[in-house]
Amino acid sequence: MAAKKELAIIMIVFTLVFMLTSCGANSAQKGDKLKVYTTIYPMYDFAKKIGGEKVEVKNLIPFGEDTHHYEPSVSDIIDLNKADILIYNGAGYEGFLEKLKQSVENKDLVFFDASYNLDLIFENEEETHDPHTWLSIKNAIKNLENIKDIFSRLDGGNAMYYENNYQKYKAEFEDLYNEYKEKFKGYKNRSIIVSHDAFGYLCKEFGLNQVPIRGINADDEPNPLKMSQIVQFALDNNINTIFYEEALNSKISETIAKEIGGKTDTLYPLETLTGEQVNSGEDYLSVMKKNLDAILRSFN
């Protein structure tokens, strides 16, 4: 009995200390660098590019994890209670957003939709749209602009700094766009077979057509009917490369490649990168370049 009581007291004290320290941390950090959280890799990279050394960026979903089925953890909520802003992709990508908004107690936290003002691709006549917006370079530039705007609003003192970063990266992104717009000129309406329905924006931008093996949320495996249709499509259109992504099981892609006597290659939807990739200095630009080169390779 006594032990139980003791345990209860320890737990109460522990909770109190914990609450006090977390409140204390919150007020102490005011006036320092902008504390930024992002949901997925592209937002992380864009926020770092615009914010530079004036902000502190952390990504909520651990790198390398499945982003489509992410459920926020208790420690995420605690982290967000100390943050200034959460930048999310929007366009319906983060299914967990509403839950998160209700759980976070931090009244000052700004929830920022980075795909504000973007042209979305709608799926069929349905209400849903493809959320992989950043795979269009033009959209990515818009993301950068939106992030620049919100940073300047929250931290007016550094507005010039953010503006300069924006101009610098906008130019780099536009160079990439122009370079590949030229390279893809001769390949209008060519098709690529991809592992999940993520590359709609990229294809639209360069006049291509995607045939996805899995749906938008990358969850289900294709049934035999779908498999045979994809094989038939590849044979009819002289496609010899089946693209897979590192985060997903590559068995299906390999099976199809074997069926058509072709090969597999990697395309990165960028919603997640592995921690090693991030540490080794890969970024949106370098990975997109890899993607576009891989697609060009598959046409030859």
């Binding site: 390398g64 994890e65 499945d66 089925h69 899995r214 990358a218 969850d219 289900d220 495996e221 294709p222 049934n223 035999p224 498999m227 985060a247 997903l248 099981n249 068995k251 299906i252 390999e254 099976t255």
Partner: peptide, 19 residues
């Protein structure tokens, strides 16, 4: 487990792609 699709393929099997 990082990749849930890997896990799912064990849950539901993957009779269309047997190595």
């Amino acid at each position: 487990v990082k990749s849930t699709t890997d896990f799912n393929s064990f849950l539901f099997g993957s009779i269309v792609s047997i190595p």
